[in-house]
Design a protein around this nucleic acid. Sequence first.
RNA 1: GCCGAUGUGGCGGAAUUGGUAGACGCGCUGGAUUCAAAAUCCAGUUCACGCAAGUGAGUGAGGGUUCGAUUCCCUCCGUCGGUACCA
Length: 951
Amino acid sequence: MEYTPRAFEKKWNRQWDESGLYKVSNDSDKPKYYVLDMFPYPSGAGLHVGHPLGYIASDIFARYKRLNGFNVLHPMGYDAFGLPAEQYAIQTGVHPAKSTEVNITRYRQQMDNIGFSFDWSREVRTCEPEYFKWTQWIFLQLFEHYYDNGLQAAAPITDLVARFSKTGTEGLEAACSETMNFSADKWNGFTKAEKEEVLMNYRIAYRKETFVNWCEELGTVLANDEVKDGVSERGGYPVERRPMLQWSLRITAYAQRLLDDMQPLEWSEAMKKMQSNWIGRSEGAQMFFDLLGFEEQIEIYTTRPDTIFGATFIVLAPEHDLVEKITTIDHKNAIEDYIEYVRTRSERERVSETKEVSGAFTGAYAINPFNGQRVPIWISEYVLKDYGTGAIMAVPADDERDNRFATKFDLPIIKIIDKSKYAWATMEDKVGVMINSDFLNGMEVKDAIQAVLEKLEEKNIGKRKINFKLRDAIYSRQRYWGEPFPISYDTDGVIHPISDLPVTLPELEDFKPASGGKSPLARAESWVNMDNGNMRETDTMPGFAGSSWYFLRYMDPKNSEAFAGQDAVNYWQDVDLYVGGTEHAVGHLLYSRFWHKFLYDKGLVPTNEPFKKLINQGMIQGVIEFMMLQKAEENGKKKFVCAKIAKERGEDGFARIPVLIDYVKDYGLETSYLNLESIQQFIKWRPEYKDAIFECGNGIFENGKFTSNGDATDSNLLTYSEVGKMSKSKYNVVNPDDVVEKYGADTFRMYEMFLGPVEQSKPWDTKGINGVFNFLRKLWGMFHDEEKFVISNEQPTKEELKVLHNAIKRVTDDIERFSFNTCVSHFMVAVNDLRKLKCNKSQILEQLIVLLAPFAPYITEELWYKMGFKDSVHKQVYPQFNADFLKEDAVEYPLSINGKRRASAKFATDLSKEDLEKMALAHPELQKWIEGKTVRKVIVVPGRMINVVVG
RNA sequence: GCCGAUGUGGCGGAAUUGGUAGACGCGCUGGAUUCAAAAUCCAGUUCACGCAAGUGAGUGAGGGUUCGAUUCCCUCCGUCGGUACCA
């Protein structure tokens, strides 16, 4: 009987759905296990073959855990707010809610096709009011809290108010935008607006004038991690820095905890490194330089306080607050010109031209607090406003950038560290002996750092300080399709939280941004102007808002009283296994951890960290195939040339035209080509090239006719192949639906796993899929003869049991270490071996089927029922491994001479080391190699190998 | 530049603690079946030399430790990802 998977896969989809097979309860005696996928953004393009890779892996694991007696939470949902839907709306007028809904329907169909065991009754969509009500609620909590550095936890802002009215800022340790000092009396004398302003300095969700990444093209602000190389990650549009009044989240308050708590997590080293680099902790000192002729001081940050005696000038960021004040009249023009120059430079230019230094002198001087020397104050774009204090002491002898700067502007360089003992050391290595440095002379750098720190604190001119690269997260977006802020402003500009949630989006006809960098919401006047005279905040929340806590909502998705009930949260605790791509390494994963910690501080979640174990699936890329179009036309005709010929003639003369990969033979290879038939397909697809000339390897194809330049009656046109993203514009998208339609979902699932380790990226290639399909056909064949289902009830032989238990052991071990590709090969081995033994015994097959069920849920269910069982294979108990069946009487030993295998022989398992040695030496094959030489040593590893050392 | 991965047949990849390198699959070659083809089945397939038995080489390159290294150590090269005037 033939294996025709589509005949029963649809049936089981229906059945599973109707019987609620994958529904999971919050009330169970079983231990819990939470397997989570990063939920997708439902884009218009639908899923391609790369998306399900991680979903398949997590689905196998979830099913495996279920068979092993766990109550498994395995949900799915949609990250449904986002820019593409809004841009689509601007272009077409289709409401984002509508297009999102359509896309979700498509995604759901595609996922259903693959047989995932998601509990769809728990689906969440971030764009739905029942969901974002709680996103808004969490935002309000962030707004109503400050971060207490003493407690190392968030605390209610009301506590802070009480404290201020009693003791002012006295002894306060709290995360803030800028350090404040006032007494209780002063606080009590503040107006309401003034008090609000002070509190804003402490709130975890706060509003402030900030330099932001403004993207004109998108009409919105972007977070740092949404900007890549000075352009927007989505769309690649230019981004500029501009000051704007924005909501931000004080993630920096959690920097140290975000760093420390990562340690015990089962995340890849790479992932942890990416996060800790992004957090960017550094230890150093804050130091104050007096200004010559001004009362203010300049606060600098340095990790190298030991180099203070080599500090020959100060550099401020061009945006630094003091610049305007200290600039002398005769330098005013130069400074203004320079600031203007910096403003015109895009982030990209600033980054790309790193070797070129520029700057301007303010005319002002500061005093080195250690030796009283006068040092000039310059400004330069290489000092960043956002990092440290926006001011540095420049030590040209010991820092490469300072050195370039000093050389260019002819500033003094004082050598302060003798590195002659450390020939390998570069300028920046923290080694050497201090010279020209007063009380530090003769000290090693390490000791000098400590000595200066002590002195700083003793003289009260600075102190130890830990600094982070991590910036607060900008939380306002000037967009329509996002969560509205539950915030309004009264006529005095005082902020009022709106506690009646959710605050929903108004209807709009036009989704274009409003003028003046405002969100489209600003145009919905009746919505903006509230009955009480207040005006609503018109910005919306960023993409990461909804995705920062969605994993908690799955625990209790229908709850209307809380983001999730305490019972549910206490039962499910945290995510045991999280599967997703590396692209979220610093964005989503960092924000989620931050929100989770905040909720933990509030006692709303029982765990400190949300994701215990993280697996990063690789990307499945596409192959992009190009045809080489000659730039110069020939006799007024366009001309395509074989890629090989193009290469010989110099590729500059050719343009690459992507071609639909379906037309290309052997795609992805150096030898990929179009034959005459596929050239005609191409012309049909792209009629603008119907008159083109095609210069193939062995002749010319033109006007439907091939003219050979030799004997060939046919010829190929080689294409140029490249590995890259799957995308519509590259005509290389492979839809999983097509693969499933042709081979069935089980084959698709197993083939994706068989491709290689899940963590690895690789180009999609359908060539090997037949191997997996054949495997399932063979399996099917074991249960059937020519026309009907037939299995035997005989007792299995020792050999058959050995095959089965070998498979159980290997598959189980490999699932545990997420090595799914090798699992597939173990199954293949088992089926091949059992077929050789002509085994169709139910006692063997039943167990094999349960073992395979997580990988191939359909064929196993079909066979299970055919075997006469009444309950789903997916509710069975995982096969128990029994080592007794693997015991052998004899072992095949490799016999080596000097580590090189020369023969092999079967010896009984229970032989002693001495016996093994004797028997090995007596082996005729080995004798040949030993003859005429001395046996120096014999190494015997029982059960493994025997090695004879001769010489 | 820094950080992290990674490099194994024609291809995807396997080898969990140092112990028979190349499992499994694709592809290819030969054979069976067939009027023929597809499909299927059987056999072979790291490379070089050889009819063969066999011999030699071989996990990016070079060195080291070891009876024995794809695995551990050092130096270098390539590819991919992250990050970058971070004081």
